[in-house]
Amino acid sequence: MTTNEHMVELALERIGEGYVFPEKTAAIETAIRGRLAAGAYEGLDGPALCETVTADLQEVCPDKHLRLLWTDEPQSTAPVDDDGGEAAFRALLREENQGIRRVERLEGNVGLIELRLIATAAEGASAIGAAMQLVAHSSALVLDLRGCRGGSPEGAAMWCSYFFPDDQVHLNDIYDRCTDSTRQFWTVAHLPAPRYVDRPVHVLTSEVTFSGGEDVAYTLQAHGRAVVVGGTTRGGAHPTARHAVAEHVLVTVPTARSINTVTGTNWEGVGVVPDLPVPADQALEEALKAISRRTM
C-alpha cells in the first residue's frame, strides 16, 4: 500500500467511526475506494492529495466540513495524542487574540467588534468580556463576522449571551453521534462584562463567514436579536473533530449537528441568508445607514 493509499484509508476509517450521518458513510467509502482503485491519488503531493480527496468527498457528500487538510505544522499521529484538534485550536486562539481582531468606537457612538475566530468559552471569556466592556456604552453595535472562519459552539453561545437579558434563552442544541446525546445551549448566567440589551445589533457576513461565525449570525438572527447585513455565508453547521492521518495531513470529520430552537434546523449547505443582502465590502456602510435611520 502506498503512502497516499494509507492516508486515504485512515481518513475513511475516521469518517466511518465518527461522521454524524452514519447512513452516508457507505456511499462515501464506495466512492473514494473507487477513486483509489482507479489510481486517482497516485503521485499526488500532500496539498494536491488533500484538494483532490476533498473534492471527491464533497461530490458524494456535500458537507463543507468533511475534508482533508494540509498543515505546515507537523502533527502527532500517536493515538494517545489525538484530541480531535483541540490543543492546536487553543494554540491558534492564543496567537490570534482569542479571535478578536479589533474593537472600535465609530462616529455616532456605534461600537464595532471584528472577529476572525470564535474562542472557547473557558479560555476566551476574559477577552470576550474585555471587548464587550469597551462597547458597553455605545448606542448601537456592529459585529463584523465577514472574516470569521469558525470556532467553538460554547464560545458562540457566550457571544450570543451578551445580547439577551438573562440566562433563560434556549439558543440551540447540538446532537453528537459518538455519545448519541443532545446538548442544550442556553444563554450564560454570569458574564464578565455588562449585557448589551435594548440597543440595535447588526451582524456583518460574507461568503467567507463559516461554522462558528455562522452560528453566532444565525442564532442572533433566528431569535430576532440582530439584523444580518452582507453576503450569504458558506454553510457549515456541523461541529467537527480533526484527526492526523499523517504528520501534515488532517481529516476533518463532522461528528455533530446543530439544531436551532426557533427554526428547528440549521444553516448547513444553505448558509446564513442576510436580512439586508449587499456585497460584503459594502456591508459596514449599509449597516451604519440602517442604524442611522433607526436612531433618528
Rank of each mutant, 00 (worst) to 15 (best):
A125D: 01
A130R: 15
V103L: 05
E86W: 14
V135H: 05
P79V: 07
R116S: 10
R101D: 14
A121H: 08
L141D: 04
D144R: 11
I118L: 03
G111W: 03
N97R: 13
E107D: 14
R146C: 05
E154L: 07
L106G: 06
N109C: 02
G108L: 05
G151Y: 00
S138Y: 00
V103F: 04
E114S: 11
S126N: 12
I100D: 10
A136E: 04
S126A: 15
R90Q: 14
R94G: 15
G84T: 09
A91Q: 10
G151F: 01
A136T: 01
E107I: 08
V135A: 04
H137M: 04
G84R: 10
F89T: 12
E95S: 12
W159L: 10
R101V: 14
G155D: 03
R149D: 03
G108N: 07
V135W: 08
D144C: 07
H137E: 13
L93A: 05
E96I: 00
D83M: 14
L115K: 01
S138F: 00
D82T: 09
S161G: 10
A121S: 10
E123S: 03
N109Y: 04
S139F: 01
A121M: 03
V80L: 07
R105H: 10
V110R: 06
D83C: 13
C148Y: 06
M158S: 02
L141H: 07
E96W: 01
S139N: 12
S138A: 11
E107G: 09
P79F: 07
R90M: 13
G147I: 00
G84Q: 11
A122P: 00
R102L: 14
L93I: 05
R146P: 02
I128W: 01
L93F: 02
G129D: 01
E96T: 13
L112Q: 09
R90W: 13
A130D: 15
R94F: 12
C148H: 05
W159N: 00
V110F: 03
A122W: 04
I100T: 13
F89P: 06
G151H: 01
D82L: 14
P153H: 07
A119H: 07
T120D: 15
E104G: 07
R101I: 14
E154W: 03
D144V: 08
A127V: 09
P79G: 06
N109S: 11
M132A: 04
G111K: 06
R149M: 08
L115W: 04
Q133S: 05
I100S: 09
V142P: 12
I113P: 07
E107H: 09
P79Q: 05
G84P: 10
L141N: 05
V135Q: 02
R101Q: 13
A131S: 11
G147K: 06
A136D: 03
V110M: 05
E86K: 15
V135D: 04
R90E: 15
L115T: 03
L143K: 11
V80C: 01
V103Q: 08
A122R: 10
A130V: 12
L92I: 11
R146N: 04
L115E: 03
E86F: 13
S138Q: 09
E86H: 13
A130C: 12
D144I: 07
A122D: 14
D144L: 09
E154K: 10
G108R: 08
T120S: 15
E154I: 00
R90S: 11
L145A: 08
A88W: 02
E86T: 14
E114N: 00
S126M: 13
R149K: 10
Q133C: 00
